[in-house]
Structure formats: structure tokens, C-alpha cells
Amino acid sequence: MKRIAVMGLGKVGTLAAELLVDAGFEVTGFDAVPREARFETRVLDLSDEAGLTGALSDQDAVLSCLPFSLNQALAKAAHGAGIHYFDLTEDVPTTKAIIELSKTSKGLMAPQCGLAPGFVGIVGADLISRFDDCRLCKMRVGALPQHPTGLMGYSFNWSPEGVVNEYLNDCEVLEDGQLKSVSAMEWIEKITIGGIEFEAFTTSGGLGTMCETYLGRVPNMDYKTMRYPGHVDLMNFFFHELLMRDRRKEAGEILVNAKPPVAEDVVYVHVAAEGTKDGRLGREEFVRAYKPMEIAGERRTAIAWTTASSVVAVIEMVRDGNLPGQGFLKQEDIPLDRFFDTVGGERYASGGRI
């Protein structure tokens, strides 16, 4: 795997492409509009399936940094070309479609390689493995402004389409040994990290494939998004009482206009597992607060570098033979120590300590 196409050159896509160049890949970036970068770029209608097929004809792999709604078509094009496929999606139907493609793929199909799903699943699986018998695993992530203002306490540093999707779609959980589907923006709890209080609530897609993997092994598992207190009540009012759930595109436009991205963001990660080891009950935790950092000569937001570093670490591991080269890749099958040994993974390992 030498030549890789990166589809979508926003902040995350551009940074991922730059990190791939630094890792020794030959990168071609594709976007709907002209972009200048230190790697080759081309303009492409990313919704044109025939154009996607042609763009992948001379590539060994493709990384999608596109909105989740475009990923199924790109995955099909990668499958047809017989090349590796990676993406960052949190969309459950998209992942299920990719799982089906992986059954006949010549290359590796690896969706959900970002932060959540992605890195948190790698950490969760590692914590679970430390117990003889694990009774629960809880994964929490919050991508937030460091200096929140207003009642919502939020800024849309991530794709508004993705945020709306995860706020409205049902969520998979394991509860008392049963695989269940529950509503988003429910099961509200309080979390405190470094003296700062958060509320956490269910959102869709953050667990990836973990519920299926650990069904019958870990009776209780769920994923929640963390926000500053008061956020979830406002979002429930906006989507459900004002019926904006029926106007998703417009909802995203309204929210981004009200709460645009900020440069000074922070990504909180709180993963915990409980169980018994040698007959003793215990709890293992991984808690971090990742902030912006300078990478490749530019200051990068926390959400951009955590997402890009995670997927590039996985791509490096596949190239170097540390992960399978065919079929479907589950994030929970990625060894955390090997992940930390990569350049991108080392940023996660060394930074963010509370």
C-alpha cells in the first residue's frame, strides 16, 4: 500500500493527507473545489459514482473524509477497484452496508477509524481485556469549546450533518446482557473531569461494532456524548418540540450559524470498565483532555488532530502488516499498544493527561 486517495479536503481531510505524506505515502487529494496543498490535488464531483471509479483506478487505498451520506458510494467504488477503504463514519446503516461489501472484498474495508467510533473502541477493548470477567464498559467523548458561551455551551467544530445524525438516530447498547436500541439524547448522567462538570447522554454510532462483538461477554456497554450542563435540554427542545428533527439539513444550518467553529477547542475522552481479576472487583479508567497542538507547521484544533491521527495510525498499521489486509476491520480488534507505537497514536498516549 503506497498510493492513497483522500476524499474531502476540509480540516480533517487535509491534515490526514499531510500526515500520510509524512508517513511515506503517495497522496492524491480530491475535493469538489480547487485546493492548494503540499500534495497533489484534483477537483472531483464527489457524488459522481463514475468519477469516483475513475479516480481510484490507480490507487492502492482510499480514505473518505466526506459526509457520511457519500460513503456508501465510495465504498462500493473501492470494492470494485479491489483496494483498501477507510473512513470516519458514525452512521450505522453505512457501516452495515460496508460489512456486506467486506465479505467479497479483495482489500480491507475499515470504516469508523476516527475518534468515536474509532479510538474509544480501541481503548474500551483494551480495558475489557484486563479483566477475567468484565461487567460493564462505558465510553464517553466530548468535543467542546474550551471557553463556552451562551446557554448551549457548544461550537460546531465537527460536521453539522454528523452531529444532527448522532443526536437523532437510535443508539445500540448492551443492558443486562441484551442488545437493545434506545433513543438518542437520553440516559443523562453527570461526569466530572479535572473539576469541570459535564452531562453525558446517548448518541448514535459511537460504539461501532462493539455491541455485536461483546454480546454475551460484557453485559452492560454504552456510548455517550459529553456536553456542558444544560445542552441536552436545549437540543431536545430544538429537535423534538420545534420538530426540527423533520428538517435535518435546515437544523444543521441553523445550529452552525448560531454556534460557529472555534480555534480553542478541547476533546475529552473518558472510558471506564469494571470487572473481576483474580477474584477481586476493580475499575480501570482512561481519562484525557486533548487540546490544539502544532503539527506540520500549523496549529490544529483538537478535534482535527485527534480524528486525523487516529485514522492515519490505523492506515500505517495496515501498511506495516500489523493489521489484516483483507475483509472487515473492527476497531476493537486493534491492539492499543501497537496503536500507541505509531506517530499518530503516540500523540494520544503522551498528551492530554489530567
Rank of each mutant, 00 (worst) to 15 (best):
P229H: 10
I191L: 04
E253D: 14
M244D: 10
K277H: 06
R245I: 08
A251G: 05
C171H: 00
L243H: 15
D246N: 15
F239W: 03
N220Y: 08
S183I: 14
V182P: 02
F198D: 10
V218F: 10
V173L: 07
A263I: 13
E189Y: 01
P145E: 04
G194P: 12
T276S: 12
M244N: 13
L144V: 08
G208F: 09
L174I: 00
V218N: 15
V269R: 00
S159T: 04
E212D: 13
L179M: 12
E166I: 08
C171P: 02
M210A: 12
A200D: 14
T213D: 15
M226S: 00
M226G: 03
E186K: 07
D170N: 06
E172R: 10
L242I: 00
G206D: 00
G195D: 13
F198S: 06
M152P: 00
D233T: 12
C211T: 14
L234E: 09
S159D: 14
F201L: 08
A143E: 09
G205N: 11
Q178S: 07
V269A: 07
T192I: 15
Y214D: 07
G194C: 03
V269C: 10
V218S: 11
E175F: 02
Y154G: 13
K249E: 15
K180C: 07
L174E: 00
R248H: 05
N157M: 04
Y167I: 05
G216A: 05
G275R: 13
A184L: 07
H270E: 14
S183N: 09
V232G: 09
E186V: 04
L144Q: 02
L243E: 15
R140L: 13
R247F: 12
V271S: 06
E241C: 05
S155V: 05
W158T: 05
T192C: 11
D265M: 04
L234I: 11
E186D: 10
N169T: 00
D170H: 02
E189C: 07
E199V: 05
K259W: 12
E161L: 01
S159R: 08
E186A: 07
N220T: 02
F156W: 13
F237D: 11
S159P: 02
A272N: 08
V266E: 05
G275I: 14
F156G: 03
L207A: 11
P219C: 10
G216I: 07
F237A: 12
G177A: 00
T202N: 14
Y228I: 05
D265P: 02
K224D: 10
L174Y: 01
L242M: 03
L174A: 02
V269I: 13
E189G: 11
M210L: 13
R247D: 01
I188R: 01
I196S: 10
R247N: 06
R280P: 01
R227V: 12
G216N: 04
G150C: 05
K190E: 15
M185N: 10
V232C: 03
C137P: 06
G206F: 02
V173R: 03
L234F: 04
S155N: 15
K259T: 14
N236Q: 09
W158R: 07
E250C: 06
T276Q: 09
R247T: 04
L242F: 03
L136S: 15
N165Q: 09
Y223R: 08
M210N: 09
K138F: 04
M152Q: 07
C211Q: 04
G195A: 14
E186L: 00
A184R: 01
G279N: 09
D233L: 04
P261R: 10
C171V: 13
